[in-house]
Design a protein around this nucleic acid. Structure first.
Length: 288
DNA sequence: CACTTGACCTGTCCGC
DNA sequence: TGCGGACAGGTCAAGT
C-alpha cells in the first residue's frame, strides 16, 4: 500500500477535514479489521471529538477527546476516504474513484455529527483499525522497534548508515524495506531510490561503501519528499482522503517501467525479483 | 539473533 | 468466454 508519502498525504488531508468533528456512529464488518469490543467503541469512540491526526512510519493515529486513539494501518490496498455532505456531481473526476460509498470493500464507516463520513475501505483486508489509549501507543511492539523517520530534519547520513549495521548479510532491498531499520519505505521508493543511487538491489548491505550509503540517503529523501509533494503514488487502489489519486507515478524513473528506457542511460529497464518482491532496475546503471 | 519463505485476502491480468 | 496461475503499494509467524 501506501508507503510513507501516501500515508502522509492521507494524514494531511484528514487533518484538514476531520479535526473538531464529533463521532456519531461507527459500523464495521469483521472483528479482524476492528477488534475492539462494543463497550469500548461506545465508551471511547462514540461521542468523542477528533483532536489530532498523526503519523509514524506507515501507521496513522487519530487522537480523540477521550484520550483514546484510532490506530490505522492501510497495508496494501487500504483507503481512508472522507465524504462531506456535498456529493460529487456526474462527470466529476472523483466519481470514478469513490463512486458511492460504502461499497463492497468498505470495512469501517465513521459518521460525524454533521453527517459527513469517513470510510475505511480495504479490498484485500490486510489493513486494520483499532482503538487504544493514546498514552499506550509508544509502548506497542511496532512503535518500540520501528526505525527513525527518514524525512526528519535531524536525521543524518551517519545515522542512516548505522541503522543498517545489523543487516549486513542481507540484500540492500530487503534491509531498506525492513521497518525496524528505516520507517516508511516500501517497494516503490526502495526501487526509485536504489536506481537514483545506482545500487543494485541484490547487493549485500555489508558490501556498500560509506559513499554509497550517503548517496542512497540523499536519493531516498529526495524521492520521498518529491512523492509527498506530488500526493503519493497511485498504481492501483491508492487514493487520498478526498478520494483523489497521487501523481508521483508520472515522475517514476524505474518503478513499473519495465521495457521502457532508463531516463539516465537509455538501457531497457528490467523487472526482477529481490527479497520476494517485484523489483525494477536499470541493468546498466545498477550492477552487482 | 539474522535471514528467508509462506500466509494473510481479493481482484486483475495474461496465457492457454 | 472460461480457467489456472502469477502477481499486486505490507507486515507477521514460522522455519532454517
Amino acid at each position: 500500500m501506501p508507503e510513507l508519502p501516501e500515508v502522509e498525504t492521507v494524514r494531511r488531508g484528514l487533518h484538514q477535514l476531520i479535526i473538531g468533528k464529533a463521532v456519531r456512529t461507527e459500523t464495521h464488518d469483521t472483528e479482524k479489521g476492528f477488534p475492539n469490543s462494543v463497550h469500548d467503541v461506545n465508551t471511547f469512540l462514540i461521542g468523542s471529538t477528533i483532536i489530532d491526526v498523526r503519523r509514524r512510519a506507515k501507521v496513522l493515529m487519530i487522537d480523540l477527546s477521550t484520550n483514546y486513539s484510532l490506530l490505522i494501518h492501510l497495508k496494501m490496498t487500504g483507503q481512508l476516504v472522507f465524504v462531506g455532505e456535498t456529493r460529487f456531481g456526474a462527470g466529476h473526476p472523483n466519481d470514478s474513484l469513490i463512486h458511492d460509498l460504502p461499497d463492497k470493500s468498505t470495512r469501517v464507516t465513521l459518521a460525524f455529527n454533521d453527517n459527513s463520513k469517513l470510510f475505511f475501505n480495504d479490498q484485500r483486508k490486510f489493513g486494520w483499525m483499532r482503538l487504544m489509549p493514546t498514552v499506550e501507543i509508544p509502548n506497542i511492539d511496532f512503535m518500540q522497534k520501528v526505525g527513525p523517520e527518514p524525512l526528519a530534519d535531524d536525521f543524518t547520513p551517519q545515522q542512516f548508515m548505522q541503522r543498517f549495521a545489523r543487516r549486513a548479510k542481507t540484500s540492500i532491498k530487503a534491509a531498506i524495506l525492513d521497518q525496524s531499520v528505516i520507517a516508511g519505505v516500501g517497494n516503490i521508493y526502495a526501487d526509485e531510490s536504489l536506481w537514483g543511487a545506482k545500487i543494485h538491489p541484490s547487493r549485500l548491505v555489508g558490501s556498500l561503501s560509506e559513499q554509497e550509503f550517503s548517496t542512497l540517503y540523499t536519493e531516498l529523501r529526495t524521492v520521498m519528499n518529491l512523492a509527498v509533494e506530488k500526493g503519493g503514488s497511485s498504481n492501483h487502489t491508492y487514493v487520498n482522503a478526498e478520494g483523489k489519486k497521487g501523481s508521483y507515478m508520472n515522475f517514476a524513473r524505474v518503478f513499473r517501467r519495465e521495457g521502457l528506457a532508463c531516463p539516465r542511460c537509455g538501457t531497457t529497464i528490467e523487472k526482477i525479483r529481490v527479497a520476494g518482491r517485484g523489483t525494477h532496475i536499470c541493468p546498466h546503471c545498477q550492477h552487482l
